[in-house]
Design a protein around this nucleic acid. Structure first.
Lengths: 346, 346
DNA sequence: GTGAAAGCGCTAACAT
DNA sequence: ATGTTAGCGCTTTCAC
């Protein structure tokens, strides 16, 4: 903040070469005499030079930054932003997304700007941010099915990649999980353990992933002779897991297997079961979904369907990178396979 | 991405005025004829103009961006970044910090870039980022007491504000909580309920906040006649709460009150107590700390010492803003008061 | 109140 | 292999 920061010019003078040469060594361009290279490097050291990014971005037309946007539903009022942010981060899922993204981005020196798009105004802000060239593209994680942001992004022809297939088709790349297969894995596990009265706590049915996990679960059970499977719709929160499990237990006291559409709800279910004197897994087997930290926090530790979130998030970043650098023109989708992780709860 | 983005020049031509005038209306500078103002506004609309931020930053020397850095301990290997990120986000505390920060920054159109500084290399990256002018300052949340980043930042004279007083004094502003008072509130609550055998699960004793919460708790108890209070050191995780409570229960079966240094550990403690047939709060009263989402997730809901994290985080952002704009020259500290929130657990 | 023009610090043609 | 130079798109004196 005190004295003016040194510029290329300063370094050039110090090293007795031209600005262009300094620029070349800074950017690692070949065709520079090793001796001069060293000379410049020392001048940089002495002056404490750090290239001004605004100047560079102005000519390269690259911000080396991507927007990491957590996108909400339709029209929550703008004051709800704080609550929205807090809620998002309360889910261990999001931490894994960040980890995966940063893992890919960091070695490439690109940085994520955190944005929340929970209102119409906030969405416009995301678009403006990109159009101003402050970020080269967007990585979007929607918390709701009918998120309008993807369509806006596609229409503005801004580079973007989504986590999960959008409910309405949009010309944007995305990564996703084969949720139906995940539901199948859960069903098979319960069946293989000999469950006779399986039930399920689904995610919000407005979310496609919830639908598919449920469908996979139901279809598999149906194929093995279970025509009617009790379902309670949850909201992916611990609280909703507790509520749903309580209801299910009241209506179907004989249940002996539970598939919860995420680990947080499974954790809630385990709590309720224990409080009602049911042992997990001996009396009731419980299978979760995600393999998040909640799966390990839970007692007993959760048998769960693993979603390779970090890998998926890294792939998002990779796809976006390709789009930004023109290596990929058409929207692409990459679908990952779930995997059953057997622990103690089933 | 297709055709070139419109520039000031384009808008100026479209509106039949000079670049300077357009710039003035874009930046809301007075001294522009209302009629021309409207004329320009329409031209902007028609062309779909969005000011190029790199160009603006180049002249204003402002990125309108701050680094939000989560800073770890000494020297975790660089590959640990993913685990570090996931762990950080698993704590509901961080979501509240983000909410508070974004709440302040958004109305000012400044955006947070997420950075992790868990290794020496990562810390250098943060410094470089700031020196390149990509961010105007840093908001630092350390997860460890001996975080070297604050000193590096201060030495480089880069604008930065910390969450919590650093263990070694550093010429940087920070916000903090009166942790000792928090410990006192917890002790008083337990005593007022008539607890005779209080115990505590502390945070990591390397963390100053843990020490102070413990000191406040102990001092208050001592003053009321409890000379010796059993302590188990936890790690602020649910798991460590479970472990500590189990130990405490084994060694002090008569305990009837627990103060856990955060809600996550309190939640773990409640689990263990219930499993051992102790009713909360009838047999054992439990007081948490933070008033995070964990306090509500817990059954029974946690009586806890509230830390106004969102307000503290917003204040961090405000302090940084002041430093960046030269409104504040000397390091300042703002200490917030904790507050007891009574629910069901005590 | 408005315009002309001088940079901000950098990269990338183009010359040499 | 190195230097010269023309911008990138914007803000901001300084004249008018």
């Amino acid at each position: 903040m005190s004295r003016q920061a040194p510029t290329l010019e300063d370094v050039a003078r110090e090293a007795g070469v031209s600005r262009a040469t300094v620029s070349r060594v800074v950017n690692g361009v070949r065709n520079v005499d090793p001796a001069i290279q060293e000379q410049v490097r020392r001048a940089i050291e002495r002056t404490g030079y750090a290239p001004n990014r605004a100047a560079r971005s102005l000519v390269t037309r690259r911000a080396e930054t991507v927007a990491l946007v957590v996108s909400g539903a339709g029209d929550s009022s703008d004051g709800a932003q704080a609550a929205f942010a807090a809620r998002v981060f309360a889910d261990p899922f999001f931490g894994r997304v960040v980890a995966g993204i940063v893992g890919f981005l960091r070695p490439r020196s690109v940085h994520p700007v955190l944005m929340f798009a929970e209102s119409a105004e906030a969405r416009q802000e995301v678009l403006t941010y990109l159009r101003q060239g402050r970020a080269d593209g967007a990585l979007v994680v929607s918390t709701h099915a009918d998120d309008p942001l993807p369509a806006l992004l596609a229409e503005a022809r801004l580079p973007a990649v989504l986590f999960a297939r959008p409910s309405r088709p949009v010309r944007l790349s995305y990564v996703d999980l084969a949720h139906r297969d995940g539901g199948r894995l859960a069903a098979e596990r319960l069946l293989d353990r000999g469950c006779r009265e399986p039930v399920t706590i689904s995610g919000p049915l407005a979310v496609a992933a919830s639908q598919e996990r449920l469908a996979g679960f139901r279809d598999t059970l149906a194929r093995r002779g279970h025509r009617h499977v009790p379902v309670a719709e949850g909201g992916f929160t611990l609280d909703s897991g507790i509520g749903s499990m309580t209801d299910l237990l009241a209506q179907h006291p004989d249940l002996d297997g539970v598939f919860a559409a995420n680990d947080l709800m499974a954790q809630g279910a385990c709590q309720v079961l224990r409080e009602h004197g049911r042992r997990v897994p001996d009396d009731v087997a419980v299978v979760g979904f995600d393999d998040s930290t909640a799966a390990l926090d839970c007692r007993p530790r959760l048998t769960t369907v693993r979603q390779p979130v970090e890998d998926m998030a890294a792939e998002m970043a990779r796809l976006l990178d390709d789009h930004i650098h023109g290596a990929r023109t058409r929207p692409t989708s990459v679908v990952f396979a779930p995997e059953l992780v057997v622990r103690e709860s089933a």
